[in-house]
Design a protein around this nucleic acid. Structure first.
Lengths: 363, 363
DNA sequence: AAGTATCGTGGGAGCGCTCCCACTCCCGTG
DNA sequence: CACGGGAGTGGGAGCGCTCCCACGATACTT
């Protein structure tokens, strides 16, 4: 059928330059150089004369040339795209703005490097399968993985496919895969130090699920903080929840029962702090007069609480940027293997970003 | 002698140079058919014999064949990718979970259709430029546009490029571009009807910025609701804010001053309601006893407020799904132009999804 | 001076797919 | 019993790019 005309005619609308989109070949012709030279200029390859660079630049500008990504990917076997994987399970677990901030950081950094962001939310096992197919089909150059659970095999599986990976958060202290995390231990310590500074001594904590490293780290920080202040640890002051509001509520009830004399609570997330706050109110404890309260995340929730919640801020967007930078670096090293002199043996890059206490009225 | 050792031997797990992926050609060879036939089977083209279909399916399974997307895109001039554009300006404006929910819906629907999601956050003019380049470079088959401002030229510009577009929300009542919106007028009406049912009669409203259709629509719904209840409209009961908490605070102060006798407030977003709630507390007005409060979005904020906020829920994720479905349909129609189903003359598809009142303690 | 390393360059050879034309069957028809 | 025609098929011709080899020109050796 000739009826396939869509191709030619829909393009003629853009009209401004000659109908079709210009190709490398046309640029080369106009610049009076060969295809190879144009390609080198476009890709910033080293040995090209100034004269050629100039001519090509002019031709590119005149024709409004834009490289065809598909052709590039086919010929160069790379995609200029990076996947950001978010396991939906955790979307509830962390306070919502978290992922948006992370995406923001990743997106910005990727845009700056002229890379595409492929967002993949995997919630079901089926979607996970599908995603692994994706990877196998080499549709991306690398993978960013958001908050992974303690026993998630995905990171290793991806790494085994030979694809560069960087995670947000880690699965354990000795994480073998490259990651960017925030200083969760520091977060716990800072919170406790602050509470101690406010004259509190019966400081309880509501931690996250202990199969998550982030939860263990914050709990560890809490204990370290107590130790540093010379306060005896007391197991009856430690309760475990699941990062949800309801979990925070339950844990707080438990704590009040076990240790009615507590005068402060460090909740490992703002949302859990919100739950705790409700229970405290029901129990007739004033915040901060009777019980001081500190959360983690510095999310909207913290600001909207009554009283506004003191919280440990994580540099989420910055984590997104950092992990992206790390990944791009790994990708670059991988392709130009000879170009990576400093890289030692088997050492995966890891980075831990500092957290910061934001003091409000709840403490 | 097949010197090609297709199977088994190239199992070196060294990682770097992973065993080559099988190509169409190899599948064809194994299935004992031609390339064309395999392509037809893979793409579900019509006239292929059952026998051939079968042989190909078997070969595909055996080799673990996955089509190379880049090659597909190059040869077929389509990308199987869709861009979701979120203008960052509004990220603050709407309550945060909004976009994540939207992304979730889009992502799910796209995954089901085996399409890639390209997320693009444009915050600066520079990023906007870059994005338009992207589009011009035809790296996507279509574009989804999230909450666009009243005077944004982007939708029209994209449409002019000949790319299918579907927006979330609209710029005005007579939106020329295809869109999916929620029933904002209905939201206002429902809120007012509910408040009237609770015996309130001096019902105020805090609306969003009136250059946004969504704000005008909710305000319109509010007025319609009053009219339906036979209540005289009163301009001193209408205040305008900007969808932020601080804006809600300012508007509430203004309202208390202008109309101290008010007994209810319909805020056009939960976040603004939260701001208003603070002011009411400072002013010694109890919620809901003295003043009933209703928001819109049914976000986390609503649940965490004290008392929990009655709010009009929008089906955000469903909007994401719907707009994606619409877009995919447009894309399909565009390529297989003769297939165009019921779609009439020049009419862009539009859909308005219902909202739903979630009653809590604030009213 | 000739020889050798180096730079800058053009262009052939694909990358893996879709498109489409040509071809073979094999049916029904006149 | 030849004939037109549709169903089913194979494979050539690219899509626009990168890779890489070969080549001439320049620069540096000895």
């Amino acid at each position: 059928m000739e009826g396939d005309g869509t191709r030619g005619e829909s393009k003629s609308v853009s009209g401004r330059q000659s109908g079709r989109r210009p190709t490398l070949e046309e640029v080369a012709a106009l610049a009076g150089v060969g295809r190879g030279t144009v390609s080198r200029v476009i890709n910033g390859a080293p040995r090209v004369s100034e004269r050629a660079k100039d001519a090509v630049a002019r031709a590119v500008a005149e024709l409004g040339y834009l490289p065809n990504q598909a052709a590039r990917a086919l010929a160069g076997s790379r995609t200029d795209a990076v996947a950001l994987v978010i396991p939906e399970t955790e979307a509830r677990v962390f306070s919502e703005p978290y992922f948006l901030d992370l995406i923001r950081g990743v997106s910005a950094e990727l845009a700056a490097a002229d890379r595409q962001l492929l967002l993949t939310l995997v919630r079901t096992e089926a979607e996970r399968q599908r995603f692994e197919h994706y990877l196998a089909a080499q549709r991306v150059d690398g993978v960013l993985l958001a908050s992974v659970h303690g026993d998630d095999p995905l990171p290793d599986r991806i790494a085994r496919l030979g694809l560069p990976v960087v995670m947000n958060g880690r699965r354990s202290e000795a994480e073998p895969v490259a990651y960017v995390d925030s200083d969760n231990i520091g977060a716990g310590r800072a919170a406790v130090a602050h509470l101690v500074g406010r004259g509190r001594s019966r400081i309880a904590t509501i931690s996250g699920p202990l199969d998550m490293y982030v939860a263990r780290a914050r709990l560890g920080g809490y204990r370290a903080g107590l130790a540093e202040a010379g306060i005896q640890p007391d197991e009856s002051l430690e309760a475990t929840a699941d990062f949800t509001e309801e979990g925070g509520r339950l844990a707080m009830r438990e704590l009040l029962e076990r240790a009615p004399g507590l005068d402060a609570v460090f909740a490992a997330s703002d949302v859990m702090a919100a739950g705790a706050r409700g229970v405290l109110r029901e129990a007739g404890r004033r915040v901060p007069e009777d019980v001081a309260l500190v959360g983690v995340d510095d999310s909207t929730v913290a600001r909207l609480m009554d009283p506004p919640l003191t919280s440990v801020r994580q540099p989420i967007e910055e984590m997104g940027r950092t992990m992206t930078r790390l990944l791009l670096q790994k990708i670059a090293e991988e392709s130009g293997a000879d170009e990576a002199p400093e890289q030692g043996v088997g050492g995966q890059p890891r980075q831990v970003l500092p957290t910061e206490l934001v003091v409000r009225d709840s403490s």
